[in-house]
Design a binder for these strands. Structure first.
Ligand SMILES: [Mg+2]
Length: 224
DNA sequence: GCGACAG
DNA sequence: ATCTTGTCGC
């Protein structure tokens, strides 16, 4: 698969924020896709000792959740982790892994937020925009936004709100288990984002895409 | 200035 | 996210 857009990555904090504000204008928050058959989960594993990182892209069939294709790559971290600028650290290796895939996936699932971000441009938006492919984000903890308490049953959810705007959902994927924070990344609506994450999380708190990509990335890092 | 803060 | 020893359980 190939990018339809690219930009400089060697930027300082100030430049990244400016870039996010510019690219955020291109994010599409409504459903805009033909089909959602092949779903790809992406994640990165880190080794602090030498800053070597491994990224994995795992393609699943959305209906059976069977693994269709997987690719892993090794790289070096070139940007620190800064809340709000997460995509600059994690996206380079992820893009590298995605470009190794022979299949062009219909949906990108990120381990982090989409528009549930201070500038409405989390990692799922950034990745979705670069490939112009539908994307959604599923974070384990909150970055920004407020919400009321969510019900205890799988499927229960409450809106995540920031500055009078709904930016995502706090979704219970398993009964009695901590909820996740889901938000649109690109070309997917709030409702479809919830429906997809729920479908991808039939047995565990996190979607299979996130669980598998995390596992493959760590396995690759352990081998070098 | 203080507190918050995806992975 | 990673670091980090032993320890509990199947
Ligand atoms: Mg991760």
């Amino acid at each position: 698969m190939n990018r339809v857009l690219d930009h400089k990555w060697d930027l300082d904090k100030k430049e990244v924020i400016a870039l996010q504000k510019t690219l955020a204008g291109g994010v599409i928050r409504e459903d805009s896709f033909e089909r959602l058959k092949y779903i790809v989960g992406v994640d990165v594993a880190y080794r602090n000792r030498d800053d070597i990182v491994s990224a994995a892209a795992v393609v699943l069939d959305v209906d059976t959740l069977d693994i269709i294709e997987t690719k892993t790559i090794n790289d070096i971290a070139k940007f620190p982790y800064i809340p709000g600028l997460f995509s600059l650290r994690e996206l380079p290796p992820i893009i590298n892994a995605l470009e190794q895939l022979t299949i062009t996936p219909d949906l990108l699932v990120c381990d982090g937020n989409g528009i549930a971000h201070p500038r409405r441009f989390g990692i799922a938006c950034h990745l979705g925009i670069l490939f112009d492919i539908p994307a959604i984000g599923c974070a384990k903890t909150r970055l920004t936004g407020e919400h009321s308490q969510v019900g205890p049953i799988r499927g229960d959810f409450v809106p995540l709100i920031d500055r009078d705007e709904v930016i995502g959902s706090v979704l219970r994927t398993q009964n009695e288990i901590d909820p996740v924070y889901v938000s649109p990344g690109h070309r997917v609506s709030l409702e479809t984002t919830r429906k997809l994450i729920l479908k991808l999380s039939p047995r565990y708190r996190l979607p299979e895409t996130t669980r598998l990509s995390d596992r493959y990335a760590r396995r690759a890092l352990a081998e070098i």
